[in-house]
Design a protein around this nucleic acid. Sequence first.
RNA 1: GCCCGAGUGGCGGAAUGGUAGACGCAGCGGAUUCAAAAUCCGCCACCGCAAGGUAUGUCGGUUCGAGUCCGACCUCGGGCACCA
Length: 851
Amino acid sequence: MSRYDPAITEARWQKAWDEAGVFTARRDENRPKYYVLEMFPYPSGRIHMGHVRNYTMGDVVARYKSSCGYSVLHPMGWDAFGMPAENAAMEKGGHPKEWTYGNIAVMRDQMKPLGLSIDWSREFATCDPEYYGQQQAMFLDFMEKGLVYRKAAVVNWDPVDMTVLANEQVIDGRGWRSGAEVERRELTQWFFRISDFAGELLEALDGLKDWPEKVRLMQANWIGKSRGLQFAFETAGAPAGFDRLEVYTTRPDTLMGASFAAISPDHPLAKALEASDAGVADFVAECRRVGTSEEALEKAEKKGMDTGIRVRHPLDPAWELPVYIANFILMDYGTGAIFGCPAHDQRDFDFATKYDLAIPPVFVAEGAEEAPLGEAFVPMKSERVRYVRGFAGATVQTGEEAVNAAIAHAEAKGYGRGVTNYRLRDWGISRQRYWGCPIPVVHCADCGVVPERKENLPIRLPDDVTFDVPGNPLDRHPTWHDCACPACGRPARRETDTMDTFVDSSWYYARFTSPRAKTPTDAADVDYWMNVDQYIGGIEHAILHLLYSRFFARAMHICGHLPAKAIEPFNALFTQGMVTHETYATRGADGRPIWQLPEDVIRDEGGARLKDGTPVEIGPSIKMSKSKKNVVDPMDIITRYGADTARWFVMSDSPPERDVEWTASGADAAQKHLARVWRLAHEVTTRGAGDPSHDQALLKALHRTIAEVTAGIEGFAFNKAVAKLYEFTNTFSKSDASAGAKRTAMLTMAQLMSPMVPHLAEDVWAMLGGEGLVAQAAWPKADPAMLVEDSVTLPIQINGKRRAEIVVPKDMPPAEVEKIALSDEAVIRFLAGQPVKKLIVVPGRIVNVVV
RNA sequence: GCCCGAGUGGCGGAAUGGUAGACGCAGCGGAUUCAAAAUCCGCCACCGCAAGGUAUGUCGGUUCGAGUCCGACCUCGGGCACCA
């Protein structure tokens, strides 16, 4: 064979790895273990470039760590429950199960040719009854430990399709299929008590040293710890049972700036008024037409309605404030009621302006005088301000001090108490859908809500369901929900809610350590393999998935399924950027966008159109997603160029943490380079002796490359590792070193390339007579002696501008460097006799002359 | 609206506060070839004949020195709890 031919060799090496069992994870007490995990994929149907990028990154780490002597666990599975399977069934017929497992088979077949070092024997899908049965067992454990409860919560309700909608399915306040205006509706739903762990989940973030700072910050903000005052207003004119109105505020120091109180449309008081007041009922109904998402609520026009009720100010019983129902008050935060201080909160300011309420300032900037405000004055809490309507603490103090003084005042006078509040809400896991893990409880007329017996698990999903009408197929199944009460044995009804798919993905990392165990985990296996040493996934999961997993690990520990060391399951986290692509849309008859696949769009100078000429609107480049159809199929590249080219390509150029916009060019170039390396290796076996006097230069370059590539991989700078390999390839190609040195250099280069392009590396290794498989060879070490340089080029700046450069011995004392610098011809010319005011010599770096 | 990021040549990007543009793509020129493909060599931020000047989204600041640190803003992206 005399040319690079991945089509033949890649399959051959994959077989060789397979037969040698190179990637089978083994518990080996004599070796350190390393668990590398990429966020498992949703089986959408085909792999996309984001997958290739994600799994190649993980594979580089896994192969590298394996070379470094670790016993590596690198598994793969499928996050297989979720709405798209049901949507497909509704649109095209068929069954979610067939659709899902069919997609898994296709995607597995697409992933295997990538040559990933995955232990496929551990593969599972979350929709396997063996998996979700263990999840149900844990749900029962959680119930027993009081980590689960039921309460009423609001959902998006489509009144035409008579079905619950996901936020994603609500577009501009309307159902995505029916187009009907969505309503908020209350249902009794299941919750996990994640908010009980809010403080701990927040504090433990400090220990996650190998997580990106931005993710820790996002999680901290999401948990949203705040210290404030909770107190009750006495009401006047309120319905029976509402003689007090509890409010929570983080700015009790602004109490004297209150000009109104406001409650959420979902507040019990609002509901009570709704029953007797048609005006309130209309207003509340209008508020409920906004979706349930925080974004929708925050963006909606701020509206309020005066209830006619008044509350007495806690510091002055004669002072009465009006009570509004306002659409921007969230029932889930604090008490669902606030007092409004328009002078120091922009939202309150807008509200007060709209409804013509007073805007009395509480404090002014230090040194300023009280004046009418054109907008809310909201300085940092750490800033000192002068209180003109203060009531606790010094006249001039920081907001922080004033808040503490106000809380102390309230507690001393007995009208309120300091409270620590979290923004984090309990995790609602109920879904009124079929394709999810059934919640293993039974509703009995006599015994109430009863947990299913563990021996009856898994509670399997029925196969005979239909999707011709919207709504939950489990609910309308004729017999599935019929069962015997586990407590009294009488006929009862099975819970038809299924679990949020985030539950499935909150513990799969633990399951990979013993995927066939008859319990959720196996003690010896989790103890050996946990924690995940390196977790890799998209930044879009920075908050929810990772926070839920952190909670779940704690809950599993409480139930004995994880050791204490695993309550933070991911030691190191890397968030890769997304693969983005332009979006293409045509317009439907109703003006709504109809997304189009890139492969169906023809681009030309004028814009873009479909094959039939329909004009296409080009949207911004955003995350590739099924719903926007802006996806590109990586299989074309793999079948045309081979896996190594695709792998090399996705590791080149873009830093892994940054978004990369997919473009079709570049794959050719990647393959050219790999073919070049192959050719250079082949030449080593055929060329003559060469010149040994050039060996040292080549080997020095090689050792620098070892150091740089190793640092690149360790630091998740794969693009830089690739660039260094390009550089060394150029050096190698130009080198006239001896055959022996070239063989050594090429063998080492094959090793350095092997995490990225493992098949080519094996080719080269075998060609040059390397021992065994590269996949099992020890990672090369850079010899420190070979990294030392004797001289260094120093730029000389004059007033910060580069004017000259000098070459000096590496260890030359600064005084001598100064002398040489000042006697440099170009320096003398630029100085033109001006006196030198200051001379800065940064050894090995730079000289700066200031005149 | 709120929270978190990112902006550097034609393009992807590199640069512990110390020579801005490594490396790659595209482009241009050359070698080889009957010709092409493939390969190899060279050039390649902008303005300027040159000396030199201007350049890291914008505007300010700190510093001997700023792409990097600080402040304000602009644009784009992610998340906002039922998309996964």
